[in-house]
């Protein structure tokens, strides 16, 4: 007679093993959660300071805490930058569709919303070495001081009125960035009007 397949033992075995591993993972997760959160928060602070073009001389956190305030209006969270008691910039987080996935980052404006102060991309999945070059300083630096127009703020050279160089070999990523930024500026202009910033 063939041996009957055991039922109870495998179930208990699996249960015990799962419990052991869940416990171990929970412990590791718990003990590193604080550190990971801190690192992520620091990354955001660094990005916000970068788009505002604030020189970080000492510690990122202390510079950030001194000059930047967080605010929320109608589910839109943004950051207010004050220099010597005077508001001198607003930072907004943005997300849009890139070539391979979503691109997200921060963009900052002057208080009167006439110029872009800077842009930074914090997460994207563009091709490394091609579209991934949106991370490079020279690309992001082109946005500093860019004048805002009601529509089509960003136009790639050599088109008429072009003001930004796209990335060679990454036409689709460059174009996604252009669309994201232009659409986002339109959104923010109407948001700023409503919120009376």
């Amino acid at each position: 007679m063939a041996k009957k397949k055991q039922i109870l033992f495998p179930v208990i075995f699996m249960l015990v093993l799962t419990m052991v591993y869940t416990f171990v993972l929970a412990f590791i997760n718990e003990s590193t959660a604080e550190r990971i959160n801190e690192l992520e928060a620091l990354e955001i602070k660094r990005s916000v300071l970068f788009v505002l073009d604030v020189p970080v001389d000492e510690d990122v956190s202390s510079t950030y805490d001194r000059a930047v305030e967080e605010a929320v209006i109608d589910d839109t969270s943004y950051y207010i930058y004050s220099d010597q008691g005077e508001v001198s910039g607003y930072v907004f987080p943005f997300t849009g569709t890139g070539l391979w996935g979503s691109i997200s980052g921060y963009i900052s404006f002057t208080p009167d919303f006439t110029k872009i102060l800077g842009i930074d991309f914090v997460a994207h999945s563009e091709t490394p070495g091609l579209g991934g070059r949106i991370d490079e300083e020279w690309f992001k630096d082109q946005f500093r001081g860019l004048e805002i127009k009601p529509e089509d703020t960003v136009i790639f050279k050599p088109a008429e009125g072009g003001n930004i160089d796209g990335i060679t070999g990454a036409t689709l990523t460059s174009d996604s960035v252009r669309k994201i930024v232009n659409a986002f500026i339109a959104d923010i202009l109407s948001f700023a009007k409503e919120a009376n910033l």
Partner: peptide, 23 residues
């Protein structure tokens, strides 16, 4: 049930590695 056990073991170590890299 060995395949199930192996998958569980492997995934646990992968998560540990992921958390470690993040931290």
């Amino acid at each position: 049930i060995r395949m199930m056990v192996q998958t569980l073991i492997i995934s646990a170590y992968v998560i540990i590695l992921d958390i470690f890299l993040k931290a």
